[in-house]
Amino acid sequence: MSQAVLPKAYTPAAARGARTEFDAGSILRSGLFYLGMLALALIFVLPLIWMLSTSLKNDVQTYHVPPIWLPWPMRFANYPEAMRAQPFGLFFLNSFRYALLTVIGQLLSCALAAYGFARLRWKGRNVLFAICLATMMIPFQVTMVPLFITFKHLGWINSYKPLIVPAFFGSAYFIFLLRQFFLSIPQELSEAARIDGASDLGILVRIILPLAKPALAVVGLFQFMGAWDNYLGPLIYLNSQHKYPVALGLQLFQSNFVEKLAWPYLMAATTVTILPIIILFYATQRILVEGISITGIKG
C-alpha cells in the first residue's frame, strides 16, 4: 500500500543518519521541542491558572496592570464569602442528587438493553438495534418542544423529574458503548453458567457485569459529568432558584455580581464548581482516557 504511494526520492541512509546522530544540534532541537510543548501546555491551562489566581485576589490585585499571577497576601476569604452570597451548598446537593440518580438510571437500563442486544439471539433484535442507533442522529432540539409540553401536562415542570426519569430508560449512546464491550466477553462463560442453571438475569448480574466494570465506569463517569455540565435541560425545566443545580446557580451568581465587578468571588465560585469534576478526573483518569479513545475508534 505505502510502497505504491511513496516516491523514492530519498535514500534510506540519509533518513536513518538524521535520526541516530547525537550532536549539539539534536540536543538543541529536543530542548526547543520541550520548550514548545511547555508553551502549548501553558496556553491550554493558562485560563484555569488565571481563574485560580483571581479567586485569591483582593480588588487592588484584580485590577492591577500588569497582571499579578501570584497574589500576596492571598485572600482565601473569597471562597466562604462567595459560597455564602448564594446558597451554593444547596446547588451542590441538587447537582449531586441529580447526577447520581441519573447515573443509577443509566447503568440499570443500559446494562439490560445492552445484554439484550449483545448476548441474546431473538427475532427483531437487529431491527430494534438499528433503530436504537438511528436515534443518536436526532438532534435534541427536535424532541425538546414536545417533551416540554408532555412534562408540562404531567405537572413535572419545576422539578427534576424531566431530567431524571428519562435516564431510567437508557440512552442509545451508552447502550451502544456497553454492547460493544459485552460482545467482547467470550460466549463460553455464559454457556457454562446456563448449563449450571443460571437464568439470563443471573448471567448478566453474576458474570457479565463484573467483567464489564471498566465499561460501566466509563458510562457512569460520562453520565455524571454530563449531568453536572447540563445547562439547557435545567434552564428549560426549573424555575425556583432553590432547585437550581450548580450550572444554573453559577450563572445566577454571575448575573447578580458582575455589575459590582466581583470577579474574585465569581472565580472562586467557578473554581468550586469545577472542583468535583477535576477530582473525579484524577481518580478515574485512566478509565476516562481509555473510554474516550475506545468510543472514538469503535464509533
Binding site: 485560563p47 481563574m51 459529568m225 455540565d229 445547562y231 450548580v246 472565580m267 469545577i274 469534576i277
Partner: peptide, 17 residues
Amino acid sequence: VPSIVPAVASAMVWLWM
C-alpha cells in the same frame, strides 16, 4: 483538562479572560 470543565464554568472563565 479544559475539555472536562463544565460549559457554564468555562463561560465564566472566558468572560473574565
